[in-house]
Simulated scan of single mutants.
Amino acid sequence: MSISASAADPSPKRYDLTARASQIDSRVKAHPEINFFLEKDGKPQDVQHACVDTRVKSQGKLVIWLMGHSQPLFERVSGYGLHAIQVHYANGWFGQFGKEPPPADDKFLGKIRLEAATGEDFSDVVNIPKPDGMQERALQFVKWLAKENPVGEWQQFLTADGKDLKWDRVIMAGSSHGSTTAARFAKHQKVDRVVMFCGPRDQYETWQGLPSATPANRYFGFSHVLDGGWTGDHYCRSWELLGLGEFGPIVDVDETKAPYGNTRRLITAADVKKDANRAHSSVVPGGSAVKNAEGKFIHEEVWKYLFTHPVEETGAATPHDPGCKLNLRKTETK
């Protein structure tokens, strides 16, 4: 679907909107047991962000971003003709349960992620009700946006009865912890696409290899080779377990031009002054991203590819990399 949003807006522009989840939906609450708050030190923690550019022809797709708000990212995706929201949902559990070594259950973190995403009872160690899960908060936010920003045409992402989002028009995206949850959710719920910056991880788990509601060719990953996620094969194994090897090899975007052989596995070795922490976040538009001598970001084409490359265009299948350990639990938890 592709529509002209500007036709509904007499003064087309980029709209950047914010709203607190607790003001949109009176049912939401804090979960201090997993370090998740609506306010902290007198400051709101549940501010959510949205962006749409009515000057750009709409692609009829909604990006749901699962990480802290990134204005540079939202400016770019809205420039591609995508709508975007960042939701505040009960994801504070990771600080408590994301430690290593893992428990006996090789899907332990995946179950928590799925409960945080859906607000349904998938895990025994957290109790996240529906109003505090990502799905419901995204739904309520889009319903609010449809009323508050009608020229943005947010209504197109709601089902006819207004009780759910049209998930086939949703692009799940995130970085690090957020990209991992985006991938786990997409296993459960079919979505249009998944964009995974510096992720996914959960390196001792096997949920990445579960049957997927979202076809594997719709997952796209991008990470830096100095990122700690490459230590111990964490990224390569997740990408292989997700089935991304069926759609092309790992491609260095600094050595290959778009469309990167139509692959789903992208890496960069751009200069980050050997800083692993910067490497981790350098793949997302923002302060850590790498610029050229003219001061322009060097990965603009990569970002556009991740969000807009036709999913039916894929690279050739590649064999398993024998140097990438797929079962870290057996080798690292003896």
Rank of each mutant, 00 (worst) to 15 (best):
261 G>Q: 11
51 C>G: 12
137 R>P: 00
289 A>E: 11
92 G>A: 07
327 N>I: 01
254 D>W: 06
299 H>F: 15
84 A>C: 11
307 F>P: 01
221 G>R: 02
273 K>C: 07
144 W>D: 08
74 F>R: 04
2 S>E: 15
90 A>P: 03
116 A>F: 04
163 K>G: 12
89 Y>V: 04
252 D>N: 15
331 T>A: 15
207 W>C: 00
324 C>W: 04
152 G>H: 08
288 S>K: 14
207 W>S: 05
280 H>G: 07
242 L>W: 06
187 K>Y: 06
21 A>T: 06
98 G>E: 08
183 A>Y: 03
81 G>S: 09
40 K>A: 13
222 F>A: 04
321 D>S: 09
171 I>F: 04
221 G>W: 02
39 E>S: 13
93 W>I: 04
212 S>C: 08
334 K>G: 13
152 G>P: 10
144 W>H: 13
332 E>R: 11
69 H>D: 13
284 V>G: 00
143 K>W: 06
21 A>W: 01
215 P>F: 08
122 F>I: 07
211 P>D: 08
166 K>Q: 14
39 E>F: 13
18 T>V: 11
175 S>A: 13
233 D>N: 14
116 A>P: 06
272 V>Y: 00
235 Y>W: 12
25 D>S: 14
101 P>S: 09
293 A>W: 04
219 Y>P: 00
204 Y>W: 11
77 V>D: 00
10 P>G: 05
218 R>M: 08
293 A>Q: 10
252 D>C: 12
144 W>Q: 12
22 S>N: 12
64 I>N: 04
45 Q>N: 09
175 S>I: 14
108 F>H: 13
168 D>Y: 10
